[in-house]
Nucleic acid binder design. Sequence first.
DNA 1: GCAATAGTGTCTTTGAGACACTATAGG
DNA 2: CCTATAGTGTCTCAAAGACACTATTGC
Lengths: 246, 246
Amino acid sequence: MGEEEFLAGYDARDYPAVAVTVDVVALTIRAGRLCVLLVERGEHPFAGHRALPGGFVRPDETLDAAALRELTEETGLGVLERAHLEQLKTYGDPGRDPRMRVLSVAYLAFAPSLPEARAGGDASAAYWVPVEEASGLAFDHGAVLADGLDRARAKLEYTPLATAFVEREFTIGELRQVYAAVWGEELHAGNFHRKVLSVPGFVESTGGTTAKGGERGGPRAKLYRAGDARLLHPALLRPAREDGIR
Amino acid sequence: MGEEEFLAGYDARDYPAVAVTVDVVALTIRAGRLCVLLVERGEHPFAGHRALPGGFVRPDETLDAAALRELTEETGLGVLERAHLEQLKTYGDPGRDPRMRVLSVAYLAFAPSLPEARAGGDASAAYWVPVEEASGLAFDHGAVLADGLDRARAKLEYTPLATAFVEREFTIGELRQVYAAVWGEELHAGNFHRKVLSVPGFVESTGGTTAKGGERGGPRAKLYRAGDARLLHPALLRPAREDGIR
DNA sequence: GCAATAGTGTCTTTGAGACACTATAGG
DNA sequence: CCTATAGTGTCTCAAAGACACTATTGC
């Protein structure tokens, strides 16, 4: 039997049906707090529960495209030009969805601060929630969120992705607040400042400064934009916590 | 409509069928070279081509279990007690499989040196191939392998997973050869030795030594086993290569 | 003036890497 | 004896972090 002949006699229905969804852990910083985009589900299962935005992958749509579409439906356009989107992990335990075997390909997104989310798709509402308050999620989305946070915290160390959380032009202080919000710990302002500028390609000066000083006083800060580095060398390491190592 | 009622009226066939496979990038070190497990496909599509071992996920089987099963079929038992297995990435572009929409959840495995592989499943042959010689793979397995190698090289830096490539008791020299094979560059023996012993929890002494010296002379080396660290602090960083950063 | 922030100077400690060296084995 | 490897000593340089300090702004 040749390959052509084989393919002609092939029936997709011979295989057990599995549905595929994408779910997005979309993170942003609002008022100095790390927030995740959640939707209130308007349909069964888990109607009325909070969940990560997501939905079924359409035929002939790549996984990346599906994730981008789901994110757009809840946040509006505009964001996506500057947001970072990457695949996180796939969750496929039998029974994680009561309907049938559903595979969820989770994505992780970093977005600059956005005004407000909007409902879209099968969600009856969508809003940003501080990550500490995001509990009781539908399906296994609690575990997905936890994995996404781990990944995000680690990626700030060795990639310049913190710049995906701020506007196109930003100050070193704003960048420091991103790190503080994601890592959940304060960073020494002086050392952070010097460190960021010392990493080749992390940020580049625009030459400008902010129009005003800080809200509670202080000099005008210089403005920077993201540099061309894809990895930070040397990395910005978190202080090693004894737990997590063993 | 309540949730019970909703589920009763739900028909899985309403959704487009997607098949799910797991494919495993299984790595080991043989004769100082990093090798990947490949199978010769006995069935269409790509019959006669080399590919990563893998197959369809069975109903009610977790993804992890499917990956473990596929690995076992080609390598025999015994390995698995000591092998490391982790999810790598999911590949789902429409058209990556000519039969139908197939989602491949790729896994990455590290195994100690094994005698020989064996055919199993729908493979007509299975063997270890040095990674530089693993070209022309079926489907998008070339890209999967490349992603797996990237992940493996990065993980040696900040995790003790190099110990998954060696026997339960090993010498520092053997560990160094793992790093050299995976990274493709020689490491300074003296500095590596001191560095490994200085990282808390990386290795712990067994008290014993090898029975004989090296094949070409040299003193008997002390034996170690893997320690209890899950992350290396400080990490064993590769020398920063200018390419790859920008 | 006072408080808060931007940005710099400097010192200490740690770690990476280069190099040299000794000791121990096989052939 | 020769060679290869195990393991250690030591020096230099880079980087992290602590601390101090100046300068500039809003109130």
